[in-house]
Design a protein around this nucleic acid. Structure first.
Lengths: 242, 242
DNA sequence: GACGGTCGGTACGCTACCGCGCAGAGGGAG
DNA sequence: CTCCCTCTGCGCGGTAGCGTACCGACCGTC
């Protein structure tokens, strides 16, 4: 299937026959919620363009991002893992578009194809790695390292230029907005990024990678290993926008 | 099957026939490594008694625990997710015993039973939730909250009294040993725990729960929902040692 | 019963980050 | 052109936890 989504574009004819008929195109505007904490996930999503965040909001209201999902996989792994829901929320962070599919149809498709399930499970492992890396990273690394890492992960999914306010970046990193301002200024002064009023541009990905902690590389390399077409995923020199 | 492990004890006769013949009893002494970063996982493990830690060691040598596994599930989820390995290490933190099974036999068993796979996938989701919660918790909560949470999670798996030095607890929490000493002293003075030279006793689990962050409850409740016999898992009033 | 190793207690200066709050700059709507 | 709102810049006092270092208490062993 012709698609920017790595899972969809890797489907064999027989796999596609199970999935395709149930796909419905969907716009993914900023802040759209794909699923909520502890509510049954009715649809899974394949993102073509843009980026979703797996958010953990604690009872006191503080929110942190624990994972990011773009065109490399699916949104709704709890459905695949037969749990139907989870205590996190998933919101669109960078707008784009994609496909959605009812959970029931998705479960039926997975039951009928071992190879399809395999691809999805491997993505799930890559996603798990990412969250596990975040757990360590959130504990040990500075704002600057984590900020650089986050921007690179975003770039791998949506390209060099995307809408993003410091306010939201602060939520992603689980820090104060003022802390992001200081850090962003540093990165800008170093010529690594540019930004103006809610729009950010990556100028020097290699330089940014030097600033980022190793968590970026570790997570990215596992994505490359585990995801169909992963060798194409996030090539630092590659241009993903035609 | 008669077992303290919730997965094993929930197996139907047909599931047991797929698993049982391949199980080999194994002692789980402190510091035993069940799998290493980026090395193929040759055996999966079912813990009967004791507790394993999923550890993330960064290139600079710092180590943090990102997840805990005891008798509620299996060690080796990357095998189930068809990824064979992952960038974390899994060590025994609290000694005990269990069973191991070659990965190949495990994969064959899972292929032959959808219900078995379902149970294992649901555990995987619960484990994923735990790691996702840790990512947020590590970012937002104080040493004291996280220490109380960790001790409670341990208690749910191994009982009220277990060997544990402050040195190791510090690694688990990703903080200095001196920081743990201060915190442990606070908890001890409050009458919540007691400890002497590498041995810790939970005196007041309810009091400890008041000190712990909500992350504890959130993770535990999802374990209860998703794991076979989960309703028995970690009942705060229950006694798990006969 | 002397010895060495492990474990826990404490102290001190330091820094990354927080909470709060305000001010200015850009941009869209009327 | 003006108004208002969003976004960014910045300052200031406060603090949790760090790095380092030292010391005493306990324990097994020979």
């Amino acid at each position: 299937m012709e698609s920017r989504n790595f899972i969809l574009s890797s489907l064999s004819a027989s796999e596609e026959a199970l999935i395709r008929p149930h796909l419905e195109p969907i716009a993914l505007p900023h802040k759209l919620t794909l699923f909520r904490p502890d509510e049954v996930i009715t649809h899974i999503h394949f993102i073509e363009q843009g980026c979703a965040s797996l958010l953990n909001t604690l009872p006191d209201g503080d929110t942190v991002e624990v994972g990011t999902i773009g065109n490399e996989g699916m949104v709704g792994t709890p459905v695949l893992l037969e749990a139907d829901r989870m205590p996190c929320q998933c919101d669109i962070q960078i707008p784009g578009n994609g496909w959605r599919m009812p959970s029931a149809a998705f479960k039926a498709a997975v039951r009928q194809s071992d190879t399809l399930r395999g691809k999805l499970l491997r993505f799930t492992q890559a996603h798990f790695n990412q969250v596990a890396q975040s757990a360590a990273c959130n504990r040990l690394h500075t704002i600057e390292e984590r900020c650089a890492r986050w921007l690179l992960m975003c770039r791998d999914r949506v390209g060099d230029d995307f809408p993003l306010t410091q306010e939201y970046l602060a939520i992603m990193l689980g820090v104060r907005r003022a802390g992001v301002t200081v850090t962003a200024k540093l990165l800008q002064n170093a010529g690594l990024i540019a930004y103006t009023r809610g729009r950010i541009t990556i100028l020097d990905p290699d330089g940014l990678e030097d600033v980022a902690c190793d968590c970026y590389r570790i997570t990215r390399d596992e994505f490359r290993r585990l995801i169909p077409k992963g060798e194409a995923y996030s090539d630092p020199r590659g241009k993903r926008t035609p």
